[in-house]
Every structure is written in structure tokens, then in C-alpha cells.
Write a protein that binds this DNA or RNA. Structure first.
Length: 288
DNA sequence: TTCTTTGTTCCGGA
DNA sequence: GTCCGGAACAAAGA
């Protein structure tokens, strides 16, 4: 489930391997992902160079040299494979070892110069890809309502104070709100509240400044750590297994229903509830 | 067959 | 107009 840290790691890999390459042609195998794929528009990116790769929230933006940007959202299960046809052999390449079952979810193949291929693979097809004019980025419906990046200085106490005026929500719903802060999903919100020692159900109006400070601090800590871990496990981007491997083990509360809280001296069993239709994990003792 | 998973969007009611 | 919660939606695996 790619949230901000995973998307950031993908962004860095794309930057490393496909920045400044030119799209020679594109093979489009799926009719639609989350949305119908605009084949014409996508095909027209052939011949264009990938000038830069950026991330905004959980979106990837591949800026081309014709004033167009490819906007990508990985949804739940979207991933990119990068294959260097020059270097990889049947023995060394993870890609050749993928099963037919894995490969049947390859939906887009970008043939780049230098014999590099960029493949978009998505089991659930909840991701999407769109080509938009770069000058329209700011008014794009996906991007225009996004709140500040959680790792930016704009995510600070005075911003939070202002934002929550006249609002009534729980802490968890606030952090999940992409207009408030963008890029956090269910998993990381669970983790942030656990590290902050705050109950997900706590009303934002009953939350003190010092508690919001804790949230900001925990958010930065968790995201940075995950990016670092993802970054090191993804170091060899060609190894899709390494990619999936490590970050799951970092979770202290998510998915830990029924087992003991990991905090020192706490032996309370982690609770799982359903909150706003999302699995919510917390320790009743550490998060009062 | 049903349940679960996710982020986003839409809708009704306040 | 604005806010909020809930539901719908997408696909596939267990």
C-alpha cells in the first residue's frame, strides 16, 4: 500500500534510472485502470524526454519536455518495474523470474532509449495515469485541494490551529484528511498516533497544543524513517522482493491486533476497531 | 459467495 | 456556502 514514503522511494528510483531518458513508444495493455486510459494522449508522449520526476502527496509527476506532465497515482497495488535490457540476463534479472501470474498485471510498458523499459504493474487496478498540460497542474482536480506536505515547514502549529477552527473531527479523521495534510494513509496515521501516545478517537477540539506538537514530531520521525528504510531496501530497484520486504516490519501497531503492545513495560493487547470504515489499531493503555 | 483491502469522490443532512 | 460522515467504487485474492 503505497503511502507517502513508498511513493517518495519510487520517485527517487525513477529519478535515478529514467530521468532524462526519452520515451520511444508505449504499449498499453489495459483499457482502464481506475479511469479509462486516454490512449491517444498517452501515445502522443512518444518522442518526448522525461525532464524531471516529482512527488506531490502520493502522486508522481513525470514532467516531459513538451509542457506535458504524466500524472500517476499508484492506488493500492501499483508499482513500477525498471528493466535494463542491456545489463539484465535471465539469470540476474528479477523480472525474468516473475511468474505469468505477476506479469499479467503489467498494464503499461514504456520503451525508453538506452534499452530501458518502464513497466506499470497493478494487481487491483486502483491506480491511474493521466497526461495533463504542465501549466494546468495547479488547477488539476487531484492536486488543487491537497493540504501541505507533512514533511514541509508549512505543516506547523499555527497552521493546525487555524485549520481546526470550527471543525469537529477525531484526530484520526483529521490526519486522514488530505486537505489538512497530504500523503498520509491509514497505516501511517495509525503509527503516528501510536508514537504520539494519542487515542485515534480523541476530539481535535479537546487536543492540546503540546499534543499537536507531538503529532508533528512523530509524523516527521516515522515518515523519514520509512523513506530511509524503503530507500535502503529499494537500493537495488530491480529487486522487487527487496522492495516489499522491509517496511512492513517497521509497524508498531498497524496489523498487530491481539498481540501485546510493543512499548516497554506495557503488556496490553492491541485493539482493532473500525473507524470511518478503516481498520484502526491502538493500545488502550498507551493511547488514552 | 463473501469479506477485506485502499484513496477518492459524491451525496444527503446539518 | 460549508462541513461532516457514510457510502460507493474500483479489482482480485483468500
Amino acid at each position: 500500500m503505497p503511502e507517502l514514503p513508498e511513493v517518495e522511494v519510487v520517485k527517487r528510483s525513477l529519478e535515478k534510472y529514467i530521468k532524462n531518458l526519452t520515451i520511444k513508444s508505449i504499449r498499453i495493455k489495459a483499457k482502464k485502470l481506475r479511469y479509462i486510459i486516454d490512449r491517444k494522449k498517452l501515445k502522443k508522449t512518444a518522442g518526448k524526454k522525461i525532464n524531471s520526476i516529482k512527488r506531490r502527496s502520493k502522486y508522481l509527476l513525470l514532467n516531459l519536455n513538451n509542457n506535458q506532465t504524466i500524472l500517476v497515482h499508484l492506488g493500492m497495488t501499483g508499482k513500477f518495474f525498471i528493466i535494463d535490457k542491456k545489463k539484465e540476463t535471465k539469470k540476474t534479472s528479477f523480472y525474468y523470474k516473475l511468474s505469468f501470474k505477476d506479469k499479467k498485471h503489467n498494464h503499461l510498458i514504456f520503451y525508453l532509449n538506452k534499452n530501458i523499459r518502464l513497466i506499470y504493474n497493478d494487481v487491483r487496478k486502483f491506480g491511474f495515469i493521466k497526461v495533463i498540460l504542465s501549466e494546468n497542474l495547479k488547477s488539476n482536480s487531484h492536486l488543487k485541494t491537497l493540504g501541505p506536505e507533512p514533511l514541509s515547514n508549512k505543516f506547523n502549529i499555527s497552521y493546525i490551529k487555524k485549520y481546526i477552527i470550527n471543525k469537529k473531527k477525531s484526530l484520526k479523521d483529521l490526519l486522514m484528511d488530505q486537505k489538512f495534510v497530504s500523503g498520509l494513509g491509514n497505516i501511517y496515521v495509525n503509527e503516528i498516533l501510536f508514537l504520539s501516545g494519542l487515542n485515534p478517537y480523541q476530539n481535535i477540539q479537546n487536543t492540546r497544543i503540546v499534543e499537536f506538537k507531538k503529532i508533528i514530531k512523530s509524523t516527521r520521525k516515522i515518515l523519514k524513517k520509512s523513506i530511509k528504510e524503503g530507500g535502503s531496501s529499494i537500493k537495488n530497484f530491480n529487486d522487487s522482493k527487496g522492495k516489499n520486504g522491509s517496511y512492513q516490519q517497521l509497524f508498531n501497531v498497524y496489523g498487530r491486533e491481539g498481540v501485546k503492545c510493543v512499548k516497554n513495560k506495557c503488556r496490553v493487547i492491541i485493539t482493532k476497531t473500525n473507524m470511518s470504515n478503516r481498520a484502526t489499531f491502538f493500545c488502550k493503555s498507551c493511547q488514552k
